[in-house]
Design a protein around this nucleic acid. Sequence first.
DNA 1: AGAGATATCCGAGCCAGATA
DNA 2: TATCTGGCTCGGATATCTCT
Length: 331
Amino acid sequence: MSVTIKDIARESGVSYSTVSKALNNSPLVKPETKKKVLETASMLGYTPNFAAKNLVSKKSRTIGLVWPAIDRIALTALVSKINELVTAENYFMILSVDEADKAIGMFKGFQVDGVMIFEEGRETMLHSDVFSSIPILSYGVSGDHVYPIIDVNHKKAIHLAVSHLIELGHTSLSYIGDATPGDKRQTEKLNGFYEAMENAGLTVHENSIGNTKGLSWYDGYLAAKELLKTSKPTALISGSYDISVGVLRAAKELKIRIPEDLSVISYDNIPQMASLETELTSVGVPIEQLAEKMVTSLLSLIEHPDSINLTQLMEPKLALRKSTKSLQKHL
DNA sequence: AGAGATATCCGAGCCAGATA
DNA sequence: TATCTGGCTCGGATATCTCT
């Protein structure tokens, strides 16, 4: 049997309501009594019963996070940061790798105060009774959603990458990423590439697009090998951190030096970019900003359920590292 | 002021009584 | 007899009221 406030009360010779007050640092308890109660609690190894606390407060101070793609490094970095911020706000976070509907059902059973969903590509079709019964915030792509979404301006991110490469004198640019229709986040990046190239008056050749048909590093590796063999771009934009890992491996095997022979910019503005074999210049919303926006938005939704702000678009930034080189300097 | 007593939170499980 | 319904209790903690 676990230790309860009643055990502490018995042991320390006060009532359990006094114990409760003492444990919550109430000014209505004498310092000596408080000290005695705290010492007894510590001696007995007391741990608060969260189920009981939730019963009274009608709050669990817990948020659930639906995370269906645990193999993606960029999302791992984001989850870690979110957890850090949530903990700093005295909340707990529980994760589920199930489908959104199933995960939310489980979270409701645990009486979480709110839910974050990481939507991968396809929109998550939630039943209306789900999001009307619990605060939900999605990290996804804005569309016809009826629940709040934090979105990233993916097109602009790729525009930043293209502009930077053009400033360095590159005109032969390639893009590598998942071009599978249906994944809006990935297709937005590709569309951003076409758009930025067109704006700059540059042609996109058919063989300068590498379709990874997936988001793993191996998908990136296979597509990069194919692309770098058939096309000889001076610069390459990669759709994600994981794909970039594959690009670096393929380039190494093909004896292509980065940035001497090939400039590379990766999507995903995460600190891990600096730990790669070649520190990659990247674009995207800095992970700290994204995490902070998600946590503050969900917590404000929990506290003020009527303050719904359906779509919040985050603006990306360019993070310069060591994977791009000016062409002019070599001429 | 400082302590104890009591109502309350919600859902599960049990039991007794009512109904088909 | 089988099934359904309603009431009660329990769990651990907090908020508030009452007492000394």
